[in-house]
Amino acid sequence: MIELSWRGRVAVLTLDRPDKHNALTAELCERIRTAVASAAQARALVLTGNGRSFCSGADLDEVHTAGFRDELYRMLHAVTAAPVPVVAAVHGAAIGAGTQLAIAADLRVVSPAARFAVPTARIGLAVDPWTIRRLALLAGHGAARRMLLACDPIDADAALACGLADRPGDLDDALDWAAGMADLAPLTVGYTKRVLGEVFEPGLAGDVATELDAAFEACWASGDFAEGRLSRAEKRPPVFRGR
């Protein structure tokens, strides 16, 4: 389900479910988290996917199961907390949890076919406050609002224009960029990454965090969430009622 290889001092973590467009399961999330930890001696890490997609999101056969959401967020935060630069090489669709994985990385290299989207409102799901804030910090509030409130996708050109993506290119370009980072002073890079995280993504104030977490949980416990699941099983458009 994943491959961990090395290019010099750069670890390359490849999602390997091409038949499922690298859709995330709880097991795959756990394996990614473990692989990130096992690459602790790397000077840089590149994330990519086999096949046509970077990551098509959560496997919809698992997204409603107990434990998937916890494994997803443990994995995302492990990627973000990696002490070395993490580069996502996005060569195709990065949808839902695929966009979350891409923004958990520090930097993104995109091919012309790259596409980002967070269409949770179409199926009655919700992403956590961390995802919304990080997406807005990277892509800007306008792009984040379009992606989250209107479920509009962002293609490679738009991602580069708004700052969601950092460079155009393919996997080789991402590897070359990461190799350059691997030559930099690791203590300086690790310190700088930590400061960027602490300054721009500090923990939310207690009351705000509590209220937002409650609203997030309410989405997952709602009738609309159940309707999204039922409509998929019945192969029909969902009818959401806001409760």
Rank of each mutant, 00 (worst) to 15 (best):
239 V>Q: 15
2 I>G: 06
50 N>L: 14
133 R>S: 11
74 R>T: 09
190 G>N: 04
12 V>F: 05
141 H>F: 10
242 G>E: 06
39 A>N: 00
160 L>C: 01
111 S>F: 05
45 L>G: 09
138 L>A: 15
65 T>P: 01
240 F>D: 09
214 A>W: 06
14 T>W: 10
205 A>G: 13
219 C>L: 04
129 P>V: 05
125 L>C: 11
8 G>Q: 00
33 R>L: 11
67 G>E: 00
181 M>G: 04
79 V>T: 04
125 L>P: 10
168 P>E: 04
187 L>I: 12
107 L>I: 12
78 A>K: 10
178 A>C: 06
144 A>G: 07
58 A>Y: 07
103 I>F: 09
194 R>H: 14
131 T>P: 07
33 R>T: 11
119 P>C: 08
66 A>I: 11
224 D>I: 04
170 D>R: 03
25 T>Q: 09
70 D>S: 14
48 T>W: 05
55 C>P: 04
164 L>W: 03
51 G>I: 02
168 P>R: 05
130 W>C: 10
104 A>L: 02
109 V>C: 10
7 R>W: 06
18 P>T: 01
218 A>K: 05
91 H>Y: 04
38 S>G: 13
116 F>Q: 07
155 D>F: 04
74 R>L: 13
53 S>G: 08
211 E>D: 14
36 V>H: 02
192 T>L: 15
134 R>I: 07
68 F>G: 02
18 P>F: 03
73 Y>H: 13
116 F>G: 06
